[in-house]
Each structure stands twice: as structure tokens, then as C-alpha cells.
Amino acid sequence: MSLGMEKYNDFAEALEIIDDEDMRFEYIIDVGKRAKKDAFPTEWQVDENLMHGCMSRVWIVNEPKDGRHYFRGDSDAIIVKGLVTMMTESFSGLTSEELSELNVEQVHRLNLGALTTQRQVGMLAMLEHLKKLGLKNAS
């Protein structure tokens, strides 16, 4: 796949190198903290951008440009912010076709062993949400 997947590979490799579950957890928190500095506009924190079904609030927006999808996301919880950021940065820059080909395997390769099953399910829900947003904007 194309340019967006470089970010994905960076995340996946970083998480593969870390062999301690607690450290992996801290890595996700750091991703969240770093992303917090690049403020998500408060005007985007509206109900229509809310992803439903999460324990904390999650907002995701899709900005199509030149036939490719770019995502940005936010959460009021820093760990979730880290997870959302990994997802949105990993899967930005894809075409609609590439986006629709993403599957569970890509999420599993992120090797988020530190996460409970519940949050892994959340990550898969996020992937589905990205695809849905992308396809909606493509049509």
C-alpha cells in the first residue's frame, strides 16, 4: 500500500521492539501525549463526529484530498487518544479502495498485547469507523 502505511509500519515496528507489556502501554500514552500538542480543533468535538459505544469520548473526522483519505481523531482519555492517533495516522493517505481492503490483520500487527480484549475490540470498531467515514465521503 502507499504512503500512509509508513506511519503504520513505524508504529508496528516500535511496538514489536518493546517486549515489556508495561512499556508498550507507556508507549501508547506517549503517542497520546504527543498528539495532544497538535490540538484537535474544539469545533470538531461535536456529536456528529463522535464515535459511539466507547467508554471515553472519541471524535474522528475524515478529510478527503486528491482522492485520498486523511483522518484526525481525538479523545478525552489520553490512552484512547494514543490509540486513535495510531489508527488515524496509520491509515491516512489511502485511497477508498485501499481503505476498504484494510482488515483485522493490520490491527493485530500493531501487537497491542498490553491492551485488554475490550480495548482491542475498540480498535477494531475504530477501523470499521474509519472505513465507514471514508466510504461515506467517497460516495
Binding site: 507489556e21 467508554m55 471515553s56 478525552d76 490512552i79 484512547v80
Partner: peptide, 21 residues
Amino acid sequence: GTHPFDIAAILDRAGVAVRVG
């Protein structure tokens, strides 16, 4: 300055089971 979900998630990693929400 923290979200209850984040606190509970880190407590969980420390073996401390609490509820959040």
C-alpha cells in the same frame, strides 16, 4: 488533569481492579 478511564487502565496494569464511568 486526568481522565478516569486512563487512571483505571493504569490501575488495572498494577493489578488493582476498580470501576470507571
